[in-house]
């Protein structure tokens, strides 16, 4: 019995040592507010509640993590709330691309993501470019050729002008000179219905949703929006592999702290979410929803956000959105 302890202790020592700079002096002393920008049940809310549940179940923190919904104006209500808690060590938020995008196009959205305290990037969500199973387009190239032959006749369904669907379209139109229409729908259900009903020719959709439609023989994937091929879709080329040299547009989710959070607190939360990312429950969640779960630490997140914002700004300008910052 006693002998079992030795390797365990050694492993524990190794783990604390590997945490290295994250020698956490800070410990939360009251409930941590975990701010999300969507209402209950929105994608971001489900994501944050998943994190909070794992922290609670595996007892990774001495206090509760309470999800606080601040919907309204894309990310602006939530960002405004986080900034109003300046210096508070117990307020963190779950950010996505929209936190970067809103300040670029909205005069009233004044709070920028990199002015807060980035903690970690947790996942990047890949996506698939899909057509109907009986569509004449077998590859992305064929679609682009058809769009060149009939400018403005083909259609994509997607979200708002700042969504990834439109960003990828703009980049593709730039490198190929083809032109096709983009139809905005507010909800994912309507976008899906538009393609299923044949009212548009193509859409970009996340793999968990597309996977079922493909399995049922309704959709065909012709390319993926990802750095590398997804495990479930090994024979589908990425956009780059399909011959279109555009930068990948990652859809990310991560955690950010209130502005002015102490370095110790940032290190504590960084370490905490790293532990979460190593739990079996989290790994299963990542696998089920086909996400890319590469953990990016605080030190790398900020420069990444700054350069990514630059990319998005250029894309938006080309897309015809009024970029104000």
């Amino acid at each position: 019995m006693r002998r079992c302890w030795v390797p365990l202790l050694a492993a524990l020592a190794l783990l604390t040592a590997s945490a290295g700079p994250a020698q956490a002096q800070f410990k939360p002393v009251r409930t941590v507010e975990f701010v999300v920008h969507g209402g209950p049940g929105s994608g971001n809310d489900v994501f944050a509640r998943q994190l909070a549940t794992i922290i609670e179940q595996d007892k990774l923190a001495p206090v509760r993590f309470q999800v606080v919904n601040k919907p309204g104006g894309g990310s602006t209500s939530a960002a405004g709330y986080v900034v109003s808690k300046k210096g508070d060590q117990h307020v963190i938020a779950c950010f996505t691309n929209i936190w970067l995008l809103d300040p670029l196009v909205q005069q009233a959205a004044v709070n920028r993501l990199h002015d807060m305290s980035p903690i970690a990037r947790l996942v990047v969500e890949p996506a698939l470019v899909v057509v109907l199973a009986d569509s004449p387009f077998k590859t992305l190239g064929q679609f682009i050729e058809a769009a060149k032959a009939n400018p403005g006749k083909l259609r994509w369904s997607g979200g708002s002008i700042t969504s990834r669907e439109n960003t990828v379209r703009q980049l593709l139109m730039q490198v190929t000179g083809a032109r096709w229409q983009f139809i905005s729908f507010p909800s994912g259900g309507e976008r899906l219905a538009a393609l299923l009903g044949g009212h548009v020719e193509m859409m970009i959709v996340d793999p968990s949703e597309a996977g079922e439609q493909i399995r049922a023989g309704k959709f065909r994937a012709i390319a993926q929006v990802s750095e590398r091929r997804l495990p479930g879709f090994q024979d589908i080329p990425t956009i780059k592999e399909a011959g279109f040299d555009i930068p990948n547009v990652p859809q990310m989710r991560g955690v950010v702290g209130a502005p002015g959070m102490s370095a110790e607190a940032v290190a504590y939360y960084e370490d905490l979410f790293f532990k979460v990312s190593q739990t079996p429950a989290w790994k299963k969640f990542i696998e089920d929803s086909q996400l890319d779960g590469e953990f990016v630490r605080a030190a790398q997140v900020k420069p990444f956000l700054l350069s990514f914002e630059e990319t998005l700004r250029d894309i938006l300008k080309v897309a015809g959105a009024k970029v104000i910052r």
Binding site: A108, S160, I161
Partner: peptide, 20 residues
């Protein structure tokens, strides 16, 4: 609020709370 198609905000009187 914010126009879905163009991200143009309309009639918000400078109130970020009205963006949505």
């Amino acid at each position: 609020g914010t126009d879905l198609f163009t991200a143009q905000s309309r009639f918000i009187f400078g109130q970020p709370q009205l963006l949505g």
